[in-house]
C-alpha cells in the first residue's frame, strides 16, 4: 500500500475496504513511545502473561521461549511490566 498521505479521495476502495491483509503492519505504533520496556532474561519464567496482555501484539517469543518486545510496534504503555509477576520487564524513559 502507498503512504497514507498520498491518498487522493478517488483512491479508496468503495467503503474504505482494505483488500491487502495485514496492512496495519505498515503503521509503526512504536513511534508513539515515550517509555520502553527493558527485558531481564534472568527473571523471565516464560509464563506468557505479557503476551496475553500486550494491547499491540508487540510481544513474541524467541527460539528459547523467552518474551521479546518488538519496538516497531510497542507503544510503551507499560502493561506488560505491570503484569509480569517476576518483574522481568522494567520501563525506562526514551531518550530525547
Amino acid at each position: 500500500m502507498k503512504p497514507e498521505q498520498d491518498y487522493k479521495w478517488r483512491d479508496f476502495e468503495r467503503g474504505y475496504v482494505i483488500t491487502e491483509p495485514g496492512s496495519s503492519r505498515e503503521y509503526h505504533t512504536g513511534d508513539w513511545r515515550s517509555q520502553r520496556p527493558i527485558f531481564d532474561k534472568e527473571r523471565c519464567i516464560k509464563c506468557g502473561v505479557c503476551w496475553i496482555f500486550c494491547p499491540d501484539c508487540a510481544i513474541r517469543f524467541d527460539a528459547e521461549g523467552y518474551a521479546e518486545m518488538d519496538l516497531d510496534y510497542c507503544k510503551g504503555c507499560g502493561i506488560c511490566s505491570r503484569e509480569c509477576l517476576p518483574g522481568a520487564i522494567t520501563m525506562v524513559d526514551e531518550e530525547g
Binding site: 497514507e4 498521505q5 491518498y7 487522493k8 479521495w9 478517488r10 483512491d11 479508496f12 467503503g15 474504505y16 475496504v17 482494505i18 483488500t19 491483509p21 496492512s23 496495519s24 503503521y27
Partner: peptide, 20 residues
C-alpha cells in the same frame, strides 16, 4: 479472500474519505 471492512483511517486520510 480476506478483506478488512470498517478499519481506521488516520487524520491524514479522513478528509479524503469523507469527500469520497
Amino acid at each position: 479472500h480476506p478483506v478488512t471492512m470498517g478499519a481506521i483511517v488516520l487524520p491524514s486520510c479522513y478528509t479524503e474519505a469523507k469527500k469520497a
